[in-house]
């Protein structure tokens, strides 16, 4: 009996060790492209060609200078941050209002409307591109910030996630507020919003990252350099010249990835919550 248990224990440990080993190797593979992009971004062009594995002799900032210019970094990053922040904030507002109505108010048409809102998640953006282009063209919004922001100002995702959260707020709070003579708006602002900070953070982070990383939409809806978001700037920059200029290209990739990676490092939980709560991207 004890021998058996000991043997099982021994085998269990070996098994665990094996798993740790395999997962560690995979994790190294997963990290490698990031780490190596950073390393190469500091290498001299000749070093990149002559010895792939060598670490840079000294840190070359020239690559970053080239990438900074090539991306028109201040402008394109500014555009991306502005668009992503605006979209995320707007979604918090429209999402909170709609989710509140769906979660806390009984009104005719509620179920149908909510289903319709949720069903938008089944409409892939790639499918509606042509029609959306014509709609934005009618509004005269092609190649403007409005084209990048307004269509992203609401989503079934945000509404669904916030509604799930609002449903957990005890009715007693609402009843008490009503006794005090507070209307919906006051209850929403003074009770629901403060209580929902985690959910709102999730929506904000998720929508921000999604919009910051968006490529196809700005590719189609904008064209001037002034309107260029950083994803487009990066793809244009790396597509222009022959593709052996890896130092500056890796620097450009690092500069592009940095904001979301930093944000993710700080707000990982909120982001992950967005995925697990809804399973919707």
């Amino acid at each position: 009996m004890t021998v058996d248990a000991a043997r099982r224990d021994w085998r269990g440990r070996l098994f665990t060790l094996l798993i740790v080993l395999v997962v560690s190797v995979l994790a190294a593979l997963w990290l490698f492209p990031f780490v190596w992009a950073v390393v190469v971004s500091f290498k001299d062009p000749s070093e990149i060609v002559t010895d792939i594995w060598a670490l840079p002799d000294r840190l070359i900032w020239d690559n970053y200078a080239s990438a900074f210019d090539g991306l028109n970094y201040v402008r394109s990053l500014g555009n991306s941050l502005f668009v992503a922040t605006s979209a995320a904030l707007l979604q918090c507002v429209t999402g909170t209002l709609a989710a509140y109505a769906f979660a806390r108010i009984v009104f005719p048409g509620r179920e149908i409307l909510f289903t319709l809102f949720l069903a938008t998640l089944m409409i892939p953006t790639t499918v509606t591109l042509t029609a959306n282009f014509l709609i934005l063209q009618n509004f005269g919004w092609i190649d403007t910030y409005a084209a990048l922001i307004v269509p992203q100002a609401a989503s079934g995702f945000a509404i669904f996630l916030l509604r799930q959260f609002f449903l957990t707020i005890p009715n007693e709070l609402q009843d008490a507020a009503r006794m005090d003579g507070a209307g919906h708006l006051r209850f929403l602002w003074h009770v629901v919003v403060p209580l929902s900070r985690p959910a709102l953070t999730t929506v904000f982070v998720f929508i921000f990252i999604t919009n910051y990383n968006e490529f196809l939409w700005p590719l189609i809806m904008t064209s001037s350099e002034d309107m260029r978001v950083i994803q487009i700037a990066l793809s244009t920059y790396t597509a222009t010249e022959g593709i052996t200029d890896f130092g500056p290209f890796m620097a450009a990739a690092v500069l592009t990835l940095l904001p979301t990676v930093i944000l993710f490092a700080f707000l990982q939980r909120a982001f992950v919550r967005g995925i697990t709560r809804t399973g919707i991207k």
């Binding site: 709609a98 005719p108 509620r110 409307l113 809102f117 709609i135 307004v150 269509p151 509404i159």
Partner: peptide, 27 residues
């Protein structure tokens, strides 16, 4: 309640209708 609810839903509805349903039908 009805009025409030519809007012609350309106902004999201406008966006989702204009940029999701309308184009989905329009294609």
């Amino acid at each position: 309640d009805l009025v409030t609810a519809y007012l609350f839903v309106l902004p999201a509805a406008a966006v989702l209708f204009t940029f999701q349903y309308l184009p989905a039908i329009d294609i």
